[in-house]
Amino acid sequence: MTGTVALVTVSYFSEDDVLSCLASVPAAAASTARSGLELCVVNNAASDPLSALEGTGATVLTPGANLGYGGAVNFAAATLGPEVEWILVTNPDVQFEPGSIDELMRVATGDERIGVVGPRVTNDDGTIYPSARDLPSLTSGAGHAVLHRVWPANPWSKRYLRADKSATTGTDPVAAGWLSGSCMLVRRAAFDAVDGFDHRFFMYFEDVDLAERLGLAGYSVLYVPTATVMHAGGTSTRSHSAAMLKAHHHSAYLYLAKRYHEWYYLPVRVALRVGLGLRSIVGARRA
């Protein structure tokens, strides 16, 4: 198991969550730490001093503005030294199970063409979160994005949910189209080769887009069911649900428009923009 790992998390008034996340790391990374493990927190809330992080060993970076999730990770990645070969991207409200980071590293270092691996993610009630999926098609992705909240049983959402790779009962790594950005271990060389996250995705879909570009660059995307983390689920965004819903729909449109950019898809892109825009308005009124 070789190569220094840098854990990068992003805080937006999430100090307590960051502390819990960092406290879970030593038991999760006993072997990894011997090769080198750096802790990096990007503070997207400039008015939050994060004073409780003093003494944790974490480097706190303050860009002076809210860069969004992917933009903040890019900001951190640009500061890392050449000795860092792996970037462990994690939400602040993730807690690592013992041995989980070591297990991710064991799988990731097994083949140089592996670009990113992700763990089994459990919700705080113990259920498994669908953190690994096939890439969404135009129909399933658009249908799910527009209709899943108002018509959960729609056929496009059913097709989207059937693409869940995290439902596996086996222990072998499973190839996936994309992995949840709540926790993913990315090969630094692969991350740099595709220019990191697309900063235009302020929140949501930045993980889908990154995994797709890694796959197109020839790297493998693997779900590792033998490594487990617990994700409390968006504690920094719960009080901003209307804004986050708008961000989700914007990112859904951006991803699908980016993937289906050819001129003959213009009518589809227009329909997507209108449909997701209306969905955002309805969602904001209900929030």
Rank of each mutant, 00 (worst) to 15 (best):
W86L: 05
G71D: 05
T90D: 03
S47V: 14
G99W: 02
D102N: 12
A46R: 04
W86K: 01
G70E: 07
D48E: 06
V42G: 01
V60S: 13
C40D: 14
M105D: 02
V94W: 03
N74R: 06
A76P: 00
A46F: 06
P49V: 06
Y69D: 09
V42L: 13
T62M: 11
E54L: 15
F96L: 07
D48K: 02
V73S: 00
T79H: 14
R106L: 08
S47W: 11
L53Q: 12
E54P: 01
A76F: 01
G99R: 03
A45M: 08
G71P: 02
L67I: 05
S51P: 05
N43D: 07
V42M: 12
G110W: 07
A52W: 02
F75R: 02
A72F: 05
A108M: 03
I101M: 12
V60Y: 05
T79V: 10
W86D: 00
I101C: 07
M105N: 07
A108Q: 00
E97N: 14
P98I: 09
A58G: 15
L61S: 12
V107P: 01
V89S: 04
G57C: 10
L67Y: 00
A45S: 12
L53G: 05
G99A: 09
L80W: 03
N44F: 06
A46D: 03
A108C: 05
G57K: 10
G71F: 05
S47A: 09
P98M: 14
A46T: 08
T62Y: 07
G68C: 13
Q95E: 15
S51E: 08
E85S: 10
I87M: 10
E103W: 11
L50C: 06
V73K: 00
Q95F: 11
G68N: 08
P98T: 10
L50N: 04
S47D: 14
E97L: 15
